[in-house]
Design a protein around this nucleic acid. Sequence first.
DNA 1: TTAGATTTGTTAAAAATTTAACAGCTATTT
DNA 2: AAATAGCTGTTAAATTTTTAACAAATCTAA
Lengths: 205, 205
Amino acid sequence: MKRLPDKTVERLSQYRRTLNNQLAKGKTHIFSHEIANLLHITPVQVRRDIMLIGYSGTLRKGYDISEMIELIGTIIDTDQGVRIAVIGMGNLGKAFIHYMYEKRTKLKIVAAFDVNPDKIDKSYEDVYCYHLDKLEEIMIEKEISVAIIATPPEVASPLADRLKEAGIRGILNYTPRPLSPREGVYLEEHDMITSLEKVAYFVKN
Amino acid sequence: MKRLPDKTVERLSQYRRTLNNQLAKGKTHIFSHEIANLLHITPVQVRRDIMLIGYSGTLRKGYDISEMIELIGTIIDTDQGVRIAVIGMGNLGKAFIHYMYEKRTKLKIVAAFDVNPDKIDKSYEDVYCYHLDKLEEIMIEKEISVAIIATPPEVASPLADRLKEAGIRGILNYTPRPLSPREGVYLEEHDMITSLEKVAYFVKN
DNA sequence: TTAGATTTGTTAAAAATTTAACAGCTATTT
DNA sequence: AAATAGCTGTTAAATTTTTAACAAATCTAA
Ligand SMILES: NC(=O)c1ccc[n+]([C@@H]2O[C@H](COP(=O)([O-])OP(=O)(O)OC[C@H]3O[C@@H](n4cnc5c(N)ncnc54)[C@H](O)[C@@H]3O)[C@@H](O)[C@H]2O)c1
Ligand SMILES: NC(=O)c1ccc[n+]([C@@H]2O[C@H](COP(=O)([O-])OP(=O)(O)OC[C@H]3O[C@@H](n4cnc5c(N)ncnc54)[C@H](O)[C@@H]3O)[C@@H](O)[C@H]2O)c1
């Protein structure tokens, strides 16, 4: 398949979440305009994305929810699933773990790391927290390929170096200190203040 | 000034954050390529954004950091600042409050709301937590115009109705249940799983 | 069975965003 | 003081993303 547009990849993830919700409600089929309403985008965009991933619905019946969830899975999931570490077991780290807990997705948080003795060698919702010293060892042992950084901002950059050294493939940085890109490591960042300021700007205007 | 592109508004917030960091390090001027490196975007984009907000740097000296911070403030801040409520004082709500604490921005979290007696009538980092019953009353009293929803997903939608009724102007929804847009209320949503799945996808390919 | 209403799938057009190109200014060097 | 190098500001081009347009398929109901 041709490389999908970035924006489509982002939306696939949202489609799947929405589809799972609907499936749980007992629906088996769904129309493009229904998906669109749930995600406040346009039906055309939904259909176009679905076209791009090579799926087809049934005329006047819509899309088969299970099939589509399945297919999206084959596109955005890896076969064995992605194994993830959370670094920094503070509020944010815990919110993450809590959020992922019980979500049946191929993304699995398999370890947490911290430096605070109060947090180490305990489990939070089935995720065991190790001392940061064990990072390299556990990363290999658990085949971790993605890390979420939720530490204080000062340590983010050296941590990213260390992660790269240990073979990390992707980093999701929630620290407000943007990281410089590292060869071979996919980097994604998010800042709540940016989201908030955007809301504030558009509220004002 | 002409309406700024959405993407530019988002970046302005990031510029300011970066500029504040640099100012704190004692720098007074900065080049477009320096900003670009720190945020891993291109220098052209930085210059273009700066042009759009009508600021000018000095040739061969770059941009005056303080002036630019000031100017960005006049664009994305409101005069009196935006007064914000966090609803749901769990991990995520606390992470938010902790993050905003001591950040000198015009965005101010002035109240939190919850329904759990353990959380109510206590302060967390100077933010007082009220019972949700007091929502309307406190919203008026504290002139709250933006709400961050960090409750369990089930309550998000009725909550949004209630917020709208009480005159909210913007909602930042961190619940994984997308809200339908409400007339006159600017809505922004974010899902960590989407970010994660994006990382996972690009790590795989 | 024909007309009408829906809804998909696809191509084309439009809009938004990013990137490139380059002219012009300023400091520095020779 | 002339040449050079470093950066900015701006217009134009390229790319990406969204929206529109519409043919084709399927069901409903007259
Ligand atoms: N991007 C955003 O939108 C956003 C939102 C909230 C918080 N944040 C940021 O996320 C980070 C975490 O926020 P929080 O509220 O969870 O803070 P927190 O203080 O509750 O948690 C930080 C945790 O990191 C641990 N830690 C410290 N140094 C470490 C190291 N070297 N290695 C591993 N762990 C280490 C601490 O022991 C603590 O458990 C902060 O940098 C904060 O600024 C970002
Ligand atoms: N979008 C994301 O990226 C992301 C990430 C993490 C968590 N989440 C979501 O954010 C929400 C909060 O996560 P968390 O880890 O903080 O959960 P949490 O359980 O720690 O916190 C939820 C809080 O909301 C309170 N609450 C319950 N009902 C309420 C109501 N009607 N009004 C006000 N408060 C109420 C609870 O008492 C609790 O304090 C959840 O919906 C979770 O799924 C989203």
